[in-house]
Design a protein around this nucleic acid. Structure first.
Length: 102
DNA sequence: GACGTGACAGCGC
DNA sequence: GGCGCTGCCACGT
């Protein structure tokens, strides 16, 4: 698929993340059928800064770590009810979410 | 057109 | 479980 369409799909999936839940870049890439493009998902999020409707703060990496240089994300997720571990990572075992259909 | 960089993931040590 | 290396694709210089 076209990269532009790929980004759009990413925003769509991210927009479906329920409140109080989070997902990973790899998971989103898999939902779109292209697990190798996990980095493109991250890049899409970078560009998503333009789309305020996209809750990109609910997207973390496979380690449950938050986005670097964006401390506010931690606060935003706390408001969502996300529980953080001592190391500052999110407990994916609890808040991980994945959309079955696309 | 080529090189370097980056909101990542997966595997090996 | 934490750290490091490799593969990936797109974008900026």
């Amino acid at each position: 698929m076209k990269k532009e369409d790929f980004y759009f799909r990413v925003y769509e999936v991210v927009g479906r993340i329920p409140k109080g839940r989070v997902t990973t870049y790899g998971a989103i890439a898999r939902m779109l059928g292209e697990p190798q493009r996990s980095r493109m998902v991250g890049q899409a999020m970078h560009y998503a800064s333009f789309y305020t409707e996209v809750p990109c703060h609910r997207v973390v990496n496979s380690q449950g770590r938050l986005v670097p240089h964006w401390d506010q994300q931690r606060t935003l997720l706390k408001m969502e009810g996300i529980h953080f571990k001592e190391n500052g990572f999110i407990d994916l075992k609890v808040h991980f979410w994945e959309d079955a259909g696309v």
